[in-house]
Computed example of a mutant assay.
Amino acid sequence: MKSILVFACLSIALCLAAPAPDAEIVNQESDVNADSYSFKFETSDGTKQEQHGSLKNLGPEEDALQVAGSYSYTGDDGKTYTITYVADENGFQPQGEHIPRS
């Protein structure tokens, strides 16, 4: 169940970091293996994202996807925003200067 939550959070993060409709991908790399993956891309509008993930064994019959990455984009105010994150059995944990800390 937790791995589904992690996947859902990652999907949201990917949507938030999606390039603008008129941006073009200028650099893209990926590496996919049976138990891990990594990718990164950069678009013509300066948006960047990179992520890597691997399976983590939580017990005899439970694995979870452990993911770490970052993305950056230019906001409507002209500032560049960068978010780094970890997503694992503890959920999606983003960090960024503009994200309030609890």
Rank of each mutant, 00 (worst) to 15 (best):
Y73K: 08
N27C: 11
Q95G: 06
Q66K: 10
T84I: 10
G46E: 05
R101V: 13
E24P: 03
A17E: 04
V6L: 05
V6E: 00
S11E: 13
N57F: 13
G75Y: 07
T74W: 05
I4P: 07
Q28R: 15
G96M: 04
S30L: 15
Y73T: 05
I83C: 04
K56Y: 06
T82E: 13
S44P: 03
A8H: 13
Y81T: 05
S72C: 09
L16W: 10
C9R: 07
Q66P: 03
K48I: 08
S11R: 11
S38Y: 07
V67L: 03
P60W: 14
A64T: 12
N57L: 14
N27L: 10
N33W: 11
H98V: 07
D45P: 01
I99F: 04
S30M: 14
N27M: 11
S54E: 15
M1C: 11
S36N: 11
F92A: 01
S54A: 14
A13M: 06
L5E: 12
Y37G: 03
K48N: 06
D63N: 15
D35F: 14
A64S: 14
A64C: 13
S44T: 07
S11N: 12
P60F: 14
G53R: 00
K40S: 15
Y85D: 02
S38P: 03
S72W: 02
K2M: 15
L16T: 09
A17Y: 02
D35E: 11
E29V: 12
C15R: 13
V6D: 00
A20C: 10
N90I: 05
Q66G: 08
A87H: 00
E50S: 13
E97L: 09
S44C: 06
L5D: 12
L14M: 15
T82R: 10
G69T: 04
K48T: 10
A64P: 01
D77K: 06
K56M: 12
G91D: 02
I83S: 02
L65K: 00
G53Y: 00
Q51M: 07
D45M: 06
N33H: 14
G91E: 03
D88S: 04
E62I: 12
V32A: 12
Y73V: 06
E62A: 13
D63T: 14
E61P: 00
A23P: 01
D22P: 04
V6Q: 01
P60L: 13
M1G: 15
P94M: 04
G78W: 01
P94N: 04
L55R: 11
N27K: 13
D76G: 12
S30A: 15
R101T: 13
A8D: 13
Q93M: 08
Q49I: 08
A20N: 12
D88F: 01
Q95K: 14
N90D: 14
G69N: 03
K56W: 05
V26M: 03
Y85T: 01
G53Q: 00
D31T: 09
P100D: 05
S54V: 10
I25M: 09
Q95S: 14
T84H: 09
S44V: 03
S72R: 08
K48A: 06
V86F: 09
Q93T: 06
L5R: 09
S54M: 12
T47N: 07
S72Y: 02
I83D: 01
A13P: 00
